[in-house]
Simulated assay, not measured.
Amino acid sequence: MPKPSPPKRATVHDVAAAAGVSRGTVNRVLNGGYVSATARTAIEAAIAKVGYVPNTAARNLVRRRSQAIGFLAMEPHSLLLEDPNIGAIMLGANEVLSVADHQMVSLVVDSYRDTERVGRYLRGGFVDGAIIVSARAHDPITRLITQLRLPATFVGHPPDLHHSIPFVGIDNVGSARTITQRLLQTGRRRIGMIAAALDRDSGADRLTGFRQALGDRFDPSLVAEVPLYDYSNGVKGMRVLLDREPLLDGVFAASDAVAAGALEVLREAGRTVPGDVGIVGFDNSSWAMRTQPPLSTVHQPAREIGQNAAELVLNQVRGTEPAARSILLDTSVVWRDSA
């Protein structure tokens, strides 16, 4: 018995015939052009009647557009799942892209193989632009995006930032300086820092702000360098600091997740917080409220960062904004019981 033929897909010609208008008039409606209200009503009714579904893929091929924006997270897979800030940035970006009828494509770059794979994907024209999170200096993906002249926006700004690519971020130096000064005002005198991610702008800038706040009291031996903004690195960094200075009475952790790991080590060591040691974090993420005591921290507007990054990319895709425009968003100190 022969297989039944698949149902015939409705075409623009079918819509035009049902509405009693020309194919050109139907195409103007589909492409956002002007037609009379009467014609538009008739065409919309005909689309519903014949079950017409626009062939977006074919239309995008003609336009040389994918209607997709890549969200490139230059982080290990484990950190991508653990870091609530990246999730908030992603959600903020997706809100704006969804309203603009663009799809967000998540691309995680965690290895050399990922770099090669994502590079091929970008060269293939599968996205119209990119939002780049946690780029490091001299990153090959950044160089490729520049070579392709792909509309893009950095979240933060790597040290070798190409001025043709805008960025959205915060003043990490000023924010770190402010919360360290607030910690100093509680009477702490031996303050250390767990400095994470010094290979990117946010980590290096937060260390700079910490150093500026301490001035002549800055002691490089009281800086524990760790590679990532995560809980396990907070544990490692805090153990290093206690080994170097058992009488430490203050800690600036480069992120809330790092601070949460540090708190666990302080508890194990029998050090009370904030009695013996005052500790502050950075981000005002969900980590800040899950710790005991709740963390004093810097509020980073992660969702708004994502929203602005998406707007900057879309403006470049549409050709409505200069490519060099960048945005710094405000932060604030949120003071809780940990210090």
Rank of each mutant, 00 (worst) to 15 (best):
Leu72Asp: 00
Arg267Gln: 12
Gly20Trp: 15
Arg303Tyr: 08
Phe71Gln: 00
Gln307Trp: 06
Ile69Val: 15
Val118Trp: 03
Leu183Trp: 10
Tyr231Ser: 03
His102Thr: 07
Tyr112Met: 12
Leu30Ile: 14
Gly124Ile: 04
Thr56Cys: 06
Leu148Tyr: 05
Ala323Thr: 14
Ile89Ser: 02
Glu245Val: 10
Val280Phe: 02
Trp335Cys: 11
Thr272Tyr: 04
Ala130Tyr: 03
Ala224Tyr: 01
Ala19His: 09
Thr180Cys: 09
Ser36Thr: 15
Asp101Cys: 06
Ile191Cys: 09
Asp171Gln: 06
Asp330Phe: 09
Gly270Cys: 03
Ala68Gln: 09
Val277Glu: 09
Asn315Asp: 15
Gly87Val: 08
Arg336His: 01
Val298Gln: 06
Val298Thr: 13
Gly33Trp: 02
Val15Phe: 07
Asp249Ser: 09
Gly174Phe: 12
Lys8Ile: 09
Leu329Ile: 10
Arg217Thr: 14
Ala197Phe: 01
Leu91Tyr: 10
Ser164Pro: 04
Gly169Pro: 05
Ala16Lys: 15
Asn60Gln: 13
Arg188Cys: 12
Tyr112Pro: 07
Gly174His: 12
Lys3Ile: 11
Arg318Tyr: 13
Leu161Val: 11
Ala152Asn: 04
Ser22Gly: 15
Asp283Gln: 02
Val29Asn: 02
Ser326Val: 08
Ser285Asn: 03
Leu80Val: 08
Leu263Val: 04
Val235Met: 11
Ile170Asp: 02
Pro322Thr: 14
Val251Cys: 01
Arg189Val: 14
Phe252Glu: 01
Arg113Gly: 08
Val333Glu: 12
Asp199Gly: 00
Ala204Arg: 03
Pro246Arg: 06
Ala324Asn: 13
Asp216Asn: 14
Leu228Cys: 01
Pro227Ala: 01
Arg9Pro: 09
Gln185Thr: 13
Arg143Asn: 07
Ala213His: 13
Val50Asp: 05
Val226Met: 01
Asp171Pro: 05
Glu225Val: 14
Gly87Asp: 03
Arg217Pro: 08
Glu304Val: 11
Ala88Ile: 07
Pro140Arg: 11
His138Ser: 10
His157Phe: 07
Pro220Asn: 13
Glu304Asp: 14
Ile132Cys: 01
Val280Tyr: 03
Asp83Phe: 00
Ala309Asn: 08
Val53Lys: 12
Ile89Phe: 04
Met193Tyr: 03
Ser221Trp: 08
Lys8Glu: 07
Arg290Trp: 10
Gly237His: 01
Arg28Glu: 00
Ala262Ser: 06
Gly270Asp: 02
Ala93Ser: 08
Gly119His: 06
Val265Ile: 12
Gly129Phe: 03
Leu148Glu: 02
Ala46Thr: 13
Leu144Lys: 05
Val223Tyr: 03
Thr153Leu: 00
Leu183Pro: 08
Ser332Trp: 10
Thr180Ile: 13
